[in-house]
Design a binder for these strands. Structure first.
Lengths: 252, 252
DNA sequence: AGTGTTTATCGTCAGGCAGACGCCTATGAT
DNA sequence: ATCATAGGCGTCTGCCTGACGATAAACACT
């Protein structure tokens, strides 16, 4: 039975990426500057069209690699292989979200360690890591006091949803290790939680919690003093992906 | 600047619905029988094309109303208005998921009380509530011993994801009340948890937990004996949507 | 009327976990 | 040597949960 193209309206399908990292004790997202209308010159989330023969996850991984050079690892793969965590976030399909045409965007959330420098088509001035506070301060002012235009399209909403997903998910999963290098200390992991939640945590209780949860952290045997002070044990992410009981976000 | 239709491949966008309810102490999902190829005669999740001027949530609410007569209420509205809970679940876009053409499906999850009788275009034989165990028993056998064909397309995966979402979400939210009539007893709410999780819960500890969580339940003053035994207090869902600390699913 | 069954509701107790916080340890900087 | 910094261990208290005893209020029998 042939299918009837007039039976349904055609859509463009894109993937948009919320790429989060922790830099200088702040949760930052990758933003790219738009080179063409609409919203020319404004900051937006990286993204692009899904190709005809591509799965959604493949498209998101391809865009992530194009923008950052990061390899997304398979969700089924062990957490401590290199590369970023990538998961589907939500889909946005308001008929008016793109003034040109009907676009449905499948947003994805990626978590990466600090290392990579942005590279949007090789032009560094068109991509940057910006604190999410700054990107979400609609019509507010940036770090240097200049007024900041809100993100293009509905990307502020997408970013807010991605940030909330990350904030809640590190409560009950070992996902926070995706923000860390392959080997890290308990203090570095704690600073990740503090940056993502924007709170201060008790170092002693945090240490007790993460080292006392079986399968969460695996000691590598090494130590480091890269944070100053007494040498700290190095750990890798363990096999446990679910934290039970969860790490509780302090009340506000 | 005119847009170039050759710059991206056209997609069909659909919504598929995982509609869950609790019947006879079992978690059930709405299934419809396919009237045309592919997968003709097989059971599938209800769904349909998103229209040209429709938001994704609108399309899902429209399909839900067409299939069940249920009104989806606004997520921002209070939980105790009538109608079903509806939220976006995930999006499925494998290039081969529909053999006819490239279809991206935005799956939604709906939770409804037991009351409604299925009606798929008025033909009851083409729609039914089936225990999720049965629908997910790929190639297994149904309640009456007959072999059951697996759901069409990737709908088994979608259903499994929806069930898992419901199972985890009632842990930390008041969503389980969406399975209940507007007024319900603590015991009825407990039987919802037991059906969704497929476990037995201690009635006394459950009672202590839900009545002790501020804002979760609001007594209406009435009582009922519709479950037999001693009369039970009736409650409505309170304003609290987040349960903190969460209701813990017993270990297996 | 009495007895059993069912469901609801209140109470008790022990164990586990989290928050608050004291204290010692091991480095680098001055 | 002394200080500053960060890591790591222990203690105490209060809250929550799981296990389970006991009572209460309805209905169905006999």
């Amino acid at each position: 039975m042939p299918y009837d193209p007039s039976a349904f309206p055609p859509f463009a399908v894109t993937v948009d990426l919320v790429v989060l990292t922790v830099r200088r004790h702040a949760l930052c997202a990758l933003a790219v500057r738009r080179g063409e209308p609409p919203f020319q010159g404004r900051w937006a989330l990286p993204g692009g069209f899904v190709r005809a023969d591509e799965d959604l996850a493949q498209a998101a991984a391809r865009e992530l690699a194009e923008e950052t050079g990061l390899q997304a690892h398979d969700p089924a793969a062990p957490v401590h292989d290199h590369g970023a965590h990538l998961e589907q976030l939500a889909t946005y399909g308001d008929p008016k979200r793109d003034p040109r045409m009907r676009v449905v965007s499948v947003a994805h959330l990626a978590l990466a360690p600090d290392l990579p420098a942005p590279r949007a088509g090789g032009d560094a001035s068109n991509a940057r890591w910006a604190p999410v506070e700054e990107l979400l301060a609609q019509g507010g002012y940036g770090r240097d006091g200049e007024p900041v235009a809100p993100l293009a399209f509905d990307h502020a909403q997408i970013l807010a949803d991605g940030v909330e997903r990350a904030r809640s998910k590190i409560e009950y999963s070992s996902l926070a290790t995706a923000f860390c290098p392959p080997e890290f200390t308990v203090g570095e992991l704690r600073r990740v939680y503090e940056a993502v939640w924007n709170v201060a945590l008790d170092p002693r209780n945090f240490h007790r919690k993460v080292t006392g949860t079986p399968g969460f952290l695996v000691p590598t045997g090494g130590t480091t003093t890269r944070q100053g002070g007494r040498p700290a044990q190095l750990f890798r992410a363990g096999g446990a992906t679910l934290l039970n009981p969860p790490m509780l976000r302090p009340e506000v």
